[in-house]
């Protein structure tokens, strides 16, 4: 065991690595809506204690049969290019994150969301809801079948378009690992003008949001494949002292 402080005879599990340098700042003028929606006072450091190193274990009973196949949720198939999106969820120490809930939502092939406030002139698809869920397997792997979403315009700046993307929500195994993000497609010509993309300070970190075209897993005469791994925060190293391979 590590030398973690104790309270009431209860040893505390080690915290998680802080990775702020990877994430966009909450105040990012290029994305105008951040102006009134970021705290102005400095954040208070929260040590990772029991509430932070635990988290909800969700999913069993929450996943329906077609939740991981967005092309089979209606009577007919949706319009658009059928794609397989798969990958592995790991932590930053390389450990797979098994049995964790992944939720996705996305626009249809024409870039329109099935949402009351999305009313730009691109048609809805009666056979596409754009919502999926799955659990990672014992190796942290996940797989969705969906259609490739279209780009869509928005009002942030003159002639603003969002690069095609799929929204991802992950729980990991601890409150500290919670992540909501977006997956992008390789070679998208719209990255240069997208403030969401540009808000990530490090170019290498941006590239980690781009899926890899995966020819090997493309299904012949059926679907293209993209592979996208997701990396959540790992544990502070102290907890693993006793687990170091000394052999």
């Amino acid at each position: 065991m590590s030398t973690d402080p104790r309270a009431d005879g209860v040893p505390l599990a080690a915290g998680y690595q802080r990775d702020h340098e990877v994430h966009p700042p909450l105040d990012y003028p290029g994305y105008r809506s951040t102006a009134l929606r970021h705290p102005k006072r400095p954040l208070q450091l929260l040590p990772h204690m029991l509430t932070e190193v635990t988290g909800p274990v969700l999913g069993e009973g929450r996943i329906g049969e077609t939740d991981n196949d967005l092309t089979r949720q209606h009577e007919d198939e949706p319009q658009g290019q059928r794609i397989i999106v798969h990958g592995q969820v790991r932590d930053s120490d390389g450990r797979p994150v098994p049995n964790t809930l992944i939720e996705i939502w996305q626009a249809n092939a024409g870039g329109r969301y099935r949402h009351a406030v999305d009313n730009w002139p691109s048609p809805l698809d009666p056979n596409f809801s754009g919502v999926g869920r799955t659990l990672t397997d014992a190796q942290g792997r996940y797989r969705f079948v969906t259609i490739r979403p279209g780009a869509y315009p928005w009002g942030n700046h003159d002639n603003a378009w969002r690069p095609a993307h799929i929204h991802f929500s992950l729980f990991g195994q601890a409150f500290t690992q919670r992540l909501v993000t977006q997956m992008y497609f390789p070679g998208d010509p719209l990255f240069f003008q997208d403030p969401m993309w540009n808000s990530i300070p490090d170019e290498k970190a941006r590239q980690r949001l781009v899926a890899r075209f995966d020819y090997a897993n493309t299904a012949p005469e059926w679907a293209l494949a993209f592979e996208w791994d997701i990396v959540l925060r790992g544990r502070e190293s102290t907890v693993f002292e006793s687990e170091v391979d000394d052999g």
Binding site: V22, H23, H115, V131, S169
Partner: peptide, 23 residues
């Protein structure tokens, strides 16, 4: 993998309601 190679966050955006709420 070392510290700092995690996946960056992005906003939930304006259409979070189709993907996140549960009854």
């Amino acid at each position: 993998m070392s510290k700092g190679e995690t996946t960056p966050s992005q906003t939930v955006g304006p259409y979070l309601h189709i993907g996140l709420p549960w009854p």
